[in-house]
Amino acid sequence: MSLGVSGLSVTKAQKLILSKVSFTAPSGQVTGLIGPNGAGKSTLLAALLGLTPATGTAHFHGLDLPAMPRRDRARQVAFVEQSAATEERLSVLDVVALGRIPFEAAWQSAPSPEDDAILAAALGETGMTGFAHRRFNTLSGGEQQRVHVARALAQQPRLLLLDEPTSHLDIRAQLQLLALLRRKAAEGMTVLLALHDLNLAVRFCDHLVVLDAGKLAAQGPPSAILTPALLEAVYGVRARLVADAPTGQPLIVYDDAVERISAQIPD
């Protein structure tokens, strides 16, 4: 079972933000959503979550995500934002427990033993067990992002959507987070994440969806679709793909990007 998006369009203030986007995100794989700023990556994720009105369909396990009841959707799909801060006095455990909201009975006052086990597992998978009783606000950006991922895992989603989750993290935290996503995909979760770093996308994604100005530019395995021609067309940069000797994986090396881009900026 995979996520099948078909003809998804979003119009905001009479402007077409997404135009008939269709793609497949295979289940049990990590799919990277890439494209320049303003290509419509965040809008696409918002449409899948039913947060913005959209036309078209996005089928997942026989359910049309944008159209289904929000509480039911929250039991299938979890979302991690780029960064989410709060001024509230919440412990790490309090934040992770938010992930159980879609499953809680109306007047349930305390987590059930089953919930407790789920929360403990989510903390463990993200390496945050020792932080459970720390104040969320006192954590570093990388730790806060891990707590958000733990919250998303506590929703026990079958589809995990992430909007540039690594953009405020140092490289070690980025690698840890992406490795965790790979593990979850291996366990059968479908993962779709917007990413900016193309080399990380090549290294960690099984499948890429490239958006450009609201339209689908390409989709497929990274090594098949990431070509100098595509990068030039979508990002306007000149790049080479070289093979990384130990792994044989392609590595993107940007050529005269600095000169070309500074040449475009009028004095």
Partner: peptide, 23 residues
């Protein structure tokens, strides 16, 4: 009080609350 738990979901904003199934 019936909305007390849902209010917790607002700690990280409207989008986070909506993605947790809150209307």
């Amino acid at each position: 009080l019936a909305y007390a738990r849902a209010l917790d979901a607002f700690a990280f904003g409207d989008t986070a609350a909506a993605s947790l199934g809150i209307d």
